[in-house]
Computed example of a mutant assay.
Amino acid sequence: MHAVDQENVSTTRTITAPVETVFAVLADPTTHPAIDGTGWVRQPVDRARLTEVGQIFRMDMYHRGAERGDYQVANEVHVLDPPRAIGWYTGHDPEGDGHLEFGGWFWRYDLAPSGPSEAEVTLTYDWSAAPQSVREYLRFPPFGPEHLANSLHHLAELAAAR
């Protein structure tokens, strides 16, 4: 089930795994390339588990529409409520000096148990805080609606395998 608002898109899926297991997969940056539904996430630069709000974790990315194809994002955890919610803002380090800039969008997963070995997971991509200057060069959302469903499908496979 997809829900599209003017400023966000979300989808929900029931996953056959305990909610704690699903959360553990999401809190592990090494799983993110396998979860990604677009194929843009290549590999984690920072591999430490996500354990606190404000934590930064970087990912190597590839998108043929990007200036050089390969690029890196820096994600900042802004929601961490195990095992109910996890989310992060996506940004970058434009000057390579450690000063991060964020574009005003975030990813968020909300999890709820639906039985001892099932979890209802809602994935939301929200760009409501993206300033006009960013909206002038990025189209939101930058992917089709199938991306969220693909991501939850991949997450379900990873969680079931644990």
Rank of each mutant, 00 (worst) to 15 (best):
H147C: 07
Y125I: 06
A129P: 06
L80D: 09
H63L: 12
N8W: 10
E67T: 13
A156N: 03
P131N: 02
E118I: 03
P29V: 09
E146R: 05
R49Y: 04
A74T: 09
P33C: 09
D126W: 04
V45S: 02
A74W: 00
G96S: 09
V73H: 01
N75R: 02
P94A: 02
L158N: 01
V53P: 04
D70T: 07
P83K: 09
Q55W: 03
V77F: 00
V22L: 02
T38G: 10
H78T: 14
F106E: 15
H2F: 08
E95K: 02
T122L: 05
G98T: 04
L148I: 01
Q132K: 11
A66M: 08
L148Q: 02
M61V: 04
E157P: 00
T14N: 04
G87R: 11
W127L: 03
Y125G: 08
F102M: 07
M59G: 03
I86C: 06
T31I: 01
T14K: 05
F57V: 02
H32D: 12
Y89P: 00
P44F: 04
V134D: 06
S128D: 09
L50R: 09
H63I: 07
V4N: 08
D36T: 04
A130M: 12
G39S: 02
G91Q: 07
A160I: 05
T14R: 09
Q132G: 02
W40R: 13
S133I: 04
G96V: 10
P82R: 11
A160T: 10
G65L: 12
I15Y: 02
A34C: 05
G103R: 13
A27M: 12
T16K: 11
I56H: 11
N75K: 06
A156K: 01
E52Q: 12
N8I: 00
R42C: 10
V45E: 05
R58E: 08
R84F: 09
V19D: 01
T51W: 00
Y71I: 03
G87C: 11
A85N: 12
S114W: 00
T31R: 14
A160G: 11
D81P: 00
F23Q: 00
G96K: 00
A159L: 07
H154S: 09
V41C: 15
D97A: 01
T16R: 13
S10K: 08
P83N: 14
Y109W: 15
L50G: 10
R42S: 08
E136H: 10
T90C: 11
V77H: 00
A17C: 08
G98L: 03
R47T: 15
F102P: 06
P145M: 05
G104M: 14
A156S: 15
F140M: 12
E7T: 15
T51N: 05
E52A: 14
R84E: 10
T21Y: 00
I35T: 08
H92Q: 10
F106V: 13
P142G: 03
W40D: 11
P116N: 06
F140I: 08
A119E: 03
R47I: 15
L80Y: 10
W107S: 13
R42K: 15
T12Y: 04
L138E: 11
T16F: 06
P131K: 01
